[in-house]
Design a protein around this nucleic acid. Structure first.
Lengths: 207, 207
DNA sequence: AAATAAATCGGACGTTCGTACTAGTTTGAG
DNA sequence: CTCAAACTAGTACGAACGTCCGATTTATTT
């Protein structure tokens, strides 16, 4: 018991330090010595627990993915309508950006890194596809007749929300003070809301 | 004459090689020796022309910005309505993504890098603000009464388009085969088109 | 043609990186 | 109490990096 506890404590501290270091200076610029110092652990411990630098990188990514997915699932749990789910997805992304900007910062880092590494590319792609699918699954049953969005698949709409959220976040990270950037989240809602209200004339409920 | 010519040829070749190398492997992983070899130039030439690695990086970024801005300006030149300008902006981004994916790839790299470097952050921020302003300038005179978008400033709309375009591009770079991602561009148009048509009942021209 | 400037080149320097190695310490089961 | 396994710590090494410098070639000017 204590063994695993110790293991988790140490490796967890390393992961935390790595997470913070990546957000602060970028993965390429971060050194293992830096992470070791910040986590108050000997350098050799990093090799011991994660093998090599790529292994540590992958571990950080994996934990980020898991946390994001779990939190998102919790947010969506008792949401009924598709529109409500979309709204919560958007709100979730917005909340993360405000209260956990490092997460987005690191996601960007990983995305960026993935483009040069086929292995990570596969992982990041699978992650995105997983989120998209989770949202999409609850669309098909709800969205039946929609004039304005008829030409767009549910997958396209989902990907659009993800894309836009991420783009907004990216810009927000660069210019956190610009309120017009953050307004993009509202714009997604308004735009899609209008779109969806096309076939909801009879039931115009505002959640 | 020949002097300046030679200078431009050599430095241009270095910039080209750097540009390609960044797109292929990322700035952090790229080495000056790699760039020197690909541009068939001695390693010391890079220092000679660009001082140091950061200088070369900045030069590549500067050229990218100039080209993007110039091409965009050309695309927007004889567009009249605001809606037409927006559409061309979106189409331009879409075209770049298809025919010049490296540009987006490198923009992402720069954005990423900027987050860890206050100096580059300022430059990238100014670049984004410049594009946004260029578009925005032609909004205020056109957009007067719009019910649905009344609560959104023209700046917010512009930033939204930039954000969404960039987010879509980012996802497209990861999964180029997914057509649903690219459909995001159409979704922007549809969403904004519907939004705008609210006050265009009298003149519903399709450009 | 001589002289000055610009451009190019190869090589070497010092630093820092990721990784590997080994000896010492702690831990928990038999 | 013993001992093997898990863990920690310090150190060292080879490689690769950005940068710098002197010599050489090429071009321009006087």
């Amino acid at each position: 018991m204590k063994t695993t506890l110790k293991r988790e404590i140490t490796s967890g501290r390393i992961l935390d330090a790595a997470y913070r270091a990546i957000a602060a200076r970028g993965w390429g610029a971060v050194t293992l010595r830096e992470i070791a110092e910040e986590s108050e652990v000997a350098l050799s411990q990093l090799s011991y627990y994660f093998g090599n630098k790529d292994g540590l990188f992958a571990a950080v990514l994996e934990r980020m993915q898991r946390e994001y997915a779990e939190n998102l699932a919790a947010k969506l749990r008792n949401a009924t309508s598709f529109q409500e789910r979309l709204e919560r997805l958007i709100d979730y992304n917005r909340l993360l950006l405000k209260e956990n900007a490092d997460l987005y910062r690191n996601f960007l880092e990983f995305f960026n890194f993935a483009m040069a590494s086929p292995e990570f590319k596969k992982q990041v792609t699978a992650f995105l596809a997983g989120i998209a699918r989770a949202i999409e699954e609850q669309i098909t049953q709800k969205q039946k007749s929609n004039q304005k969005l008829a030409s767009f698949s549910s997958s396209a709409i989902t990907h659009f929300i993800l894309s836009a959220s991420f783009g907004i976040s990216l810009q927000h990270l660069l210019t956190p003070k610009n309120k017009d950037v953050e307004a993009g989240f509202d714009l997604i809602k308004t735009a899609l809301g209008i779109v969806f209200s096309a076939d909801a004339k009879d039931a115009t409920r505002i959640s």
